[in-house]
Amino acid sequence: MNESFVTVCGNVVADPQSRTTKQGKVFASFRVASTTRRYDQGLGAFVDGSTNFVNVVGFNALGANVMGSLKKGDPVIVYGRLRVNQYQATDGTPRTSVEVDAHAVGHNLTRGLSALTRLGRPQGEPVDRLADPVITGSFDDDAAQPVDPGPDVADLEEALDGDPWATGSGTASSGELREEDADTDAYVVTPG
């Protein structure tokens, strides 16, 4: 299967919002405005080009961390799977939305300082999480809803059962890693 992954640099347009899918999964959604900058030799300065608006969705721990870390105006870098949706608005107007199923989100450190509070090891999901109608409609209320929400995925808690790093309760203290705490334990693998 071909998938497109993108990296988007820009600014958070509005405070992230926490939402829930029909299956009860919590996710965070926000928009990023990415404006190109080009050097104009005639002016002898950099000028702003066009602005692209990208809808971003973060699930599970990433979604929770987005909610606690980002706010309107923050410069961010988002990496994830690209999805372009074409639909008709309720008035019949054709529209297009660009969405990123985020795998990683962080502050753009070329624009300021940031500090990390380590919580645990992230886990991935091998499904099309953006196919859920609640997510598709979370950015535009008059978007046409997709028919197939995709396969149901086990709750994160079940996937992380018995993993001390999942809750941040690993045996290392004060940020100190011991050899027995090394990232060598088995990962949870879900069928894809």
Rank of each mutant, 00 (worst) to 15 (best):
residue 85 N to E: 00
residue 111 R to Y: 03
residue 119 L to H: 02
residue 91 D to A: 13
residue 40 D to S: 15
residue 47 V to W: 11
residue 118 R to S: 10
residue 79 Y to P: 00
residue 65 N to D: 09
residue 61 A to M: 05
residue 68 G to L: 11
residue 80 G to Y: 00
residue 62 L to P: 11
residue 29 S to Y: 01
residue 39 Y to H: 10
residue 54 V to S: 15
residue 45 A to H: 05
residue 31 R to P: 10
residue 115 A to C: 02
residue 70 L to A: 06
residue 62 L to E: 13
residue 36 T to A: 14
residue 73 G to I: 06
residue 71 K to C: 07
residue 74 D to P: 03
residue 114 S to E: 09
residue 36 T to P: 12
residue 100 V to M: 01
residue 132 D to C: 12
residue 85 N to Q: 05
residue 54 V to W: 00
residue 114 S to Q: 06
residue 62 L to Q: 08
residue 38 R to T: 12
residue 57 V to P: 11
residue 119 L to C: 05
residue 96 T to P: 02
residue 131 A to V: 03
residue 58 G to Q: 11
residue 31 R to E: 15
residue 93 T to M: 09
residue 35 T to R: 01
residue 31 R to Y: 11
residue 103 H to Y: 00
residue 80 G to W: 00
residue 112 G to D: 06
residue 69 S to H: 05
residue 82 L to I: 00
residue 119 L to Y: 08
residue 123 Q to L: 02
residue 45 A to D: 08
residue 79 Y to Q: 11
residue 128 D to E: 03
residue 83 R to P: 09
residue 122 P to L: 02
residue 121 R to I: 08
residue 132 D to P: 14
residue 47 V to E: 13
residue 53 F to N: 13
residue 115 A to F: 10
residue 107 H to W: 04
residue 136 T to A: 15
residue 54 V to K: 10
residue 132 D to I: 09
residue 119 L to W: 06
residue 129 R to F: 04
residue 37 R to M: 01
residue 106 G to I: 04
residue 119 L to V: 08
residue 110 T to E: 05
residue 61 A to P: 08
residue 50 S to W: 04
residue 59 F to L: 10
residue 75 P to E: 14
residue 104 A to E: 09
residue 112 G to H: 02
residue 81 R to Q: 13
residue 65 N to P: 03
residue 124 G to I: 06
residue 87 Y to I: 01
residue 42 G to S: 15
residue 124 G to T: 10
residue 94 P to H: 07
residue 92 G to A: 13
residue 83 R to V: 03
residue 41 Q to M: 12
residue 38 R to A: 12
residue 73 G to W: 03
residue 92 G to Y: 06
residue 57 V to H: 10
residue 107 H to D: 10
residue 33 A to M: 05
residue 70 L to K: 00
residue 100 V to Q: 03
residue 72 K to S: 04
residue 126 P to Y: 05
residue 127 V to R: 04
residue 85 N to I: 02
residue 78 V to H: 05
residue 33 A to N: 07
residue 74 D to R: 00
residue 134 V to I: 09
residue 119 L to F: 04
residue 31 R to T: 09
residue 92 G to F: 01
residue 57 V to C: 12
residue 118 R to V: 07
residue 102 A to S: 15
residue 52 N to E: 13
residue 44 G to W: 08
residue 63 G to R: 03
residue 123 Q to E: 14
residue 110 T to L: 11
residue 36 T to S: 15
residue 136 T to Q: 14
residue 82 L to C: 06
residue 32 V to I: 01
residue 122 P to G: 13
residue 64 A to M: 01
residue 109 L to H: 06
residue 51 T to S: 12
residue 29 S to P: 01
residue 110 T to M: 11
residue 72 K to E: 10
residue 139 F to Y: 01
residue 57 V to D: 04
residue 65 N to S: 13
residue 74 D to L: 06
residue 110 T to F: 03
residue 111 R to A: 12
residue 80 G to R: 01
residue 129 R to N: 14
residue 73 G to S: 04
residue 93 T to N: 07
